[in-house]
């Protein structure tokens, strides 16, 4: 099996008005999805959890604050998984809650 990184991107989101129940439901979605990968013995590790705020530095010293309107989708976080092939790793990405929020999952092999 090879190692892959799954990177989640989501449009800028604002959870400050979300209710406790909504946050709990969202947390469950993620936990169940990652749990499903782990149940197949294919989970390696969690990436660092990224906080919502941030800055972007561009060529010419241009600094912008988040939310990152320029890049439509903000990098949420990532996890490391193992899979037989890129196709297999992509299958693992199905059901990722980022997709429900109109986001995307990028699947990248990692050099050994």
């Amino acid at each position: 099996m090879k190692d892959f990184m799954l990177l989640f991107r989501q449009p800028s989101y604002d959870y400050s008005n979300a209710s406790k129940e909504e946050m709990k439901a969202l947390g469950k979605k993620w936990a169940d999805w990652v749990g499903g990968i782990a149940a197949q013995g294919k989970f390696i590790s969690n990436g660092a959890r990224l906080a919502p705020e941030g800055k972007v530095l561009k060529a010419g010293g241009v600094v912008t604050d988040g939310p990152f309107v320029e890049i439509r989708e903000r990098l949420g976080s990532f996890i490391m998984v193992k899979a037989d092939s890129l196709e297999d790793a992509t299958t693992l990405a199905h059901g990722c809650p980022a997709l429900d929020a109109n986001g995307s999952v990028e699947i990248r092999p990692v050099y050994p």
């Binding site: 990652v34 749990g35 782990a38």
Partner: peptide, 12 residues
């Protein structure tokens, strides 16, 4: 279920 989800992450 949630505890099993956590357990799998550290001890499959």
């Amino acid at each position: 279920l949630q505890v099993y989800n956590q357990l799998l992450l550290i001890n499959y």
